[in-house]
Simulated scan of single mutants.
Amino acid sequence: MNDDELDRLIALRGDRLTLRDLVDAGLDDLPRPGSGGTLARWRRLAAVAAHDLSLVKLFEGHTDALAIQAELGAAPPAAGSRWGTWCAEPPQARLRFEADGAHYRLHGTKAWCSGAAQLTHALVSGWDGDGQPCLAAVALDAPGVTITDSGWAAVGMRETASVDVRFDGVPAHPVGAPGDYTARPGFWQGGAGIAACWWGGARAIAGTARTAILGRGEPHALAHLGAIDVAVATSATMLRACAAWIDAHPGASARTWALRTRLAVEAAAESTMQHAGRALGAGPLCRDARFARAMADLPVFLRQSHAERDLASLAEPDTDAAWTL
């Protein structure tokens, strides 16, 4: 992995850096989760997140789509293609997969389609005629695909433009067998990787706070910086431990590790934002565009967490507490 190339692109393109730039530079060629390089994969996600949270939302979805297709034995995607992973299942927006020989025809509306206007392909979840959950690969320039401008009014994560997309009899290729998408080990391995994106965003906010606070030397601000240090450093430790566990158990379910890590990083990110805001006041929120954007983006991105529902999942009787030192 060439992190120098990422730094060069960031320096060259700045706020104009796009998913296409990252793909064309080969920066999406990441180790697969559980391959022994999970931490290296997450470091790349965190580095992109520290630059731009909206961009990493698209980058993570693209690299997740590549990993899913490899894990489920799909044909390698075309060079230069840009993928989304659109598998949210709100009850009002579920796709129907109609069998068409060895393929599907997709019908319905898919919600939360991040980056739809910037992508060439997507993996989409849906339901076949027997009521089974399925996954399909679809080209977004196929007849019958309509990318709407509906479904996204947020200020935070604005550049993801996570709109609704309509599918009217669109041809698509099955990826794996029904049920494979959530049953595979990579489902929770990839879910844990989202936390690396959140952590990267928190790290960028922490870096801005550190630069400003150390220049002032004000005791209360320094206390806030100390709290930020604890939050960022301890959550990084959790990410490293989770990546090591995944690499040591690549065929096992990482559900418990993923939930713990996501929730730990979520709490750390929220603590970082609170302390940074209190330490720095309104000035950077009003005059530093990058800081202000990160402070608006990260709360929206964090809501990909299921909050108390995930916390309750960790209290289930079959969860391995493993409270050892």
Results as ranks from 00 to 15, higher is better:
310 D>M: 14
175 V>P: 00
176 G>K: 06
60 E>V: 07
87 C>D: 15
1 M>Q: 08
285 L>P: 05
21 D>G: 03
153 A>M: 12
281 G>L: 00
117 A>F: 06
58 L>I: 13
81 S>Y: 12
318 D>G: 04
222 L>D: 00
7 D>C: 05
167 F>A: 02
233 A>E: 14
189 Q>T: 08
112 W>Q: 06
86 W>F: 01
246 I>Q: 12
27 L>E: 03
185 P>R: 03
146 T>F: 02
306 H>I: 09
28 D>K: 06
284 P>N: 02
268 A>Q: 03
147 I>Q: 04
105 R>S: 08
26 G>F: 08
263 L>T: 06
188 W>P: 02
185 P>E: 04
301 F>L: 13
226 G>M: 08
259 L>G: 04
126 G>Y: 05
152 W>I: 11
113 C>G: 04
90 P>V: 06
256 T>V: 13
98 E>P: 06
93 A>D: 04
287 R>K: 08
156 G>P: 01
35 S>M: 07
151 G>T: 02
192 A>R: 13
43 R>C: 00
220 H>G: 14
306 H>V: 07
177 A>T: 15
13 R>S: 09
83 W>I: 11
220 H>I: 09
60 E>K: 11
125 S>H: 06
272 T>Q: 07
240 R>Q: 15
122 A>M: 11
113 C>R: 03
96 R>L: 10
293 R>Y: 01
191 G>Q: 13
173 H>Q: 15
216 R>Q: 10
289 A>C: 07
284 P>V: 02
15 D>R: 10
225 L>R: 03
116 A>K: 02
228 I>Y: 01
304 Q>G: 10
220 H>N: 07
154 A>S: 09
221 A>S: 08
177 A>G: 12
24 D>R: 15
213 I>F: 05
229 D>H: 10
263 L>E: 11
117 A>N: 15
159 E>T: 14
238 M>R: 13
105 R>D: 00
214 L>Q: 12
